[in-house]
Design a protein around this nucleic acid. Sequence first.
DNA 1: CTGAAAGCGCTTACAG
DNA 2: CTGAAAGCGCTTACAG
Lengths: 338, 338
Amino acid sequence: MAVTINDIAKAAGVSPSTVSRVISNNPRISSATREKVLKIMKEMDYHPNVIARSLVNKSTGIVAVLIPSNTEKAFQHPFYPEILRGITSAAYKNQYKILISGASDIKEEKAIIRDFTRNGLVEGIILLTSRVKDSAIAALKKIDFPFVVVGRPVNENEVNWVDNNNFDISYDLTSYLISQGHNKIAFIGVSSQYIVTLDRLEGYKKALQDNNIAVNENLIVEGKFMNDTGDNLMQRIFERGEKPTAIIACDDFLAFGAIKSLVEKGIKVPNDIAVAGFNNVPLCDYFTPSLTSVDVNAFDLGAKAFEMLMIYIKSHVKSFNRAIIPARLVIRNSTLRG
Amino acid sequence: MAVTINDIAKAAGVSPSTVSRVISNNPRISSATREKVLKIMKEMDYHPNVIARSLVNKSTGIVAVLIPSNTEKAFQHPFYPEILRGITSAAYKNQYKILISGASDIKEEKAIIRDFTRNGLVEGIILLTSRVKDSAIAALKKIDFPFVVVGRPVNENEVNWVDNNNFDISYDLTSYLISQGHNKIAFIGVSSQYIVTLDRLEGYKKALQDNNIAVNENLIVEGKFMNDTGDNLMQRIFERGEKPTAIIACDDFLAFGAIKSLVEKGIKVPNDIAVAGFNNVPLCDYFTPSLTSVDVNAFDLGAKAFEMLMIYIKSHVKSFNRAIIPARLVIRNSTLRG
DNA sequence: CTGAAAGCGCTTACAG
DNA sequence: CTGAAAGCGCTTACAG
């Protein structure tokens, strides 16, 4: 079918070894034969078969991205595609290919990991989120397979990971709201399953304490992070009889939902209650009012995760690395009193 | 390193051929040896090397998804991840793997296609969108490489593709608005580059004609589809001195932007102007007012594209297929007068 | 500077 | 029912 190295060798009157050396730019080939072979390769439109090459090299140039089962439904959130885009972009620069795979439940996830780590196709894995009890991380660690996690895991010192400093960015956002005169600030969307929300909660609490504001547990509402609805969570605060002047939502979509529920109650945002979110999805600009949020640089999160995985794969020194991607507070109308 | 078929053969006291036959469930193996080999495989945690297998089979079980350069920026739109999810889901069921690759410009796109179609790694390609003059489609057709396009291409009879019937769904949406008493309906977000928007425009025009409403070109606004902003496009209508009573936007985000610009002008949606979009992104529910839209079933679009590619790869009868995925009008507050 | 040979880990006619 | 052999398309010591 396709033209092989042997076809080229025959056509050029040299051995396959020589053709192979031309392809790999081996310096010991005379420029005369090099030119000749190159010319024939072009004429015959030769492209090396990467499968054959991989078999002898034991390196395939393929890395897998695993979209964990809990994330699968949330994948419509712009955060994930943006990470993915960062990963593919970095992979392209490194001549690597990205295999993606979404698991619809834990069982499927386990099967996929078994497959990827044993079948010789994949050199490393990027996990798109980390959970509190993460069986994927555990499995990968156990067999010592190269992997990087996006999102700080619980066992942060035994894993390669990339994340923002969620404590700090939440601290900064909260401090900003305090500086605007708020002292009854609600925090919605904490989930014990997601470390990111717990970190943000801690940053929020610390900022309150540093400003001598007592933490009021009634103002803190649990929620399924990206799966729950903001109006739902707001409802719970009102049921507790609390009247916050500002709301921090662990995700922009939660914030959108919260605003909607406030508006329906005739409460004005930001004049009655200020609202801020995290992740800075594109819609923050379009929403009315435009939403104050924190840009987490998801693209960089993904690109860095890939680079870190490359280092892990190529280096012979075993180490556990982390990278903190800077975030940026984006102030918009939802927290700006007129 | 990893345990191979030869290790198993040695440990089981049989030939590699026999082990291979056990793996492939060849019926001519005695159940005694089958059990013995299976047991050893389990004990030694053997997993076949898919690279070696691919080399002899000439089939890798890998399909590539190409995110075209124009789409790369728009990839944050929930539409694309949802298609991707449909693709990976169908791929998983068929024991296939998905390679993704985003091109940042046409040059990169060409390089990627050259690579994918020649390197022996990929059995087929899914294109995530079709453009009016699509060099990717042209290249793939030229070398007769298996591919499927999501989105009806111009040369629709020479290509395998999956899409909604955008003419019909736009016709239906327009007819619905007319039935609500509207006769000055604007249509925003047409782009000559995107067939989908042209189809929707035609459906809109036909619905007007069938209801004896003259098409007013001043009510039709070009826009870069998902890249432009809805407020921008609305502005142009007002500059033309038009006062529509309803607006159809070619995409929900355009609709969100349009609503925002209307609200800022003190115009009430839906009471002064009704607004509807396409694609039914999750935010349609959260937005105020909730947005009437058309659910295009992106997941099914993706899953069907994969299935079609499978048929193309496996069948020996050459044919050009199309699949129309049904869409569903979702009526919400933005078109419901109180 | 170049070639013959062995080998990467499988599969599959061909024998028996 | 099972095995020896050839081969998939490459790469890379080993010779020369």
